[in-house]
Simulated assay, not measured.
Amino acid sequence: MMCGRFTLFASYEKLLEEFDVEVAIAEELYRESYNIAPSQQVIAIIHDGSKNRMGYLKWGFIPSWSKDEKFASKMINARSETVDEKPSFKQSFYRKRCIIPMDSFYEWKREGNSKIPMRIKMKDDSLFAVAGLWDTWQSPNGAVHTCTILTTTSNKFMSTIHERMPVILPKEHQHTWLNPQIQNRDQLKTLLVPYPSELLTAYPVSDKVNSPKNNGRELIEEVS
Rank of each mutant, 00 (worst) to 15 (best):
I116P: 05
P38M: 03
F128L: 05
Y30H: 09
I43L: 10
R110C: 11
V42F: 03
A202E: 09
F61I: 04
T201D: 10
D84G: 09
M122F: 10
K96G: 03
L133M: 08
N35E: 04
Q183Y: 12
P212H: 05
S50M: 13
F157A: 03
F93G: 02
P212R: 10
P63C: 09
E22R: 15
K14S: 13
A129L: 06
K189L: 15
F19A: 03
V205G: 03
T152N: 00
F105V: 03
Y106C: 04
N77K: 03
K70Q: 13
N214Q: 11
E221D: 14
C3G: 04
K171T: 11
L191P: 10
Y12A: 02
G4K: 00
E22C: 10
S211M: 11
P87W: 11
M158F: 06
Q91M: 12
M165Y: 04
V209D: 00
W134Q: 01
P87A: 10
F157C: 01
P196N: 14
S66R: 10
K115G: 07
P196G: 09
K51Y: 14
K121I: 09
V83F: 00
E28N: 15
A26I: 12
A131F: 00
I220V: 15
K58T: 15
S159Y: 12
S197L: 11
W59Y: 01
W177Q: 04
S33Q: 07
Q138D: 13
C98W: 02
E32H: 15
E198R: 15
Y12T: 05
F89M: 02
P196S: 09
N210L: 00
Q91R: 14
L150Y: 02
I46W: 10
K208D: 14
T148H: 00
K189P: 07
V205I: 12
K208W: 08
E18W: 12
K51S: 13
D20R: 14
E111M: 12
M54R: 08
E218I: 06
I120E: 02
A10W: 11
I99T: 05
Y12W: 05
N113A: 13
T190F: 09
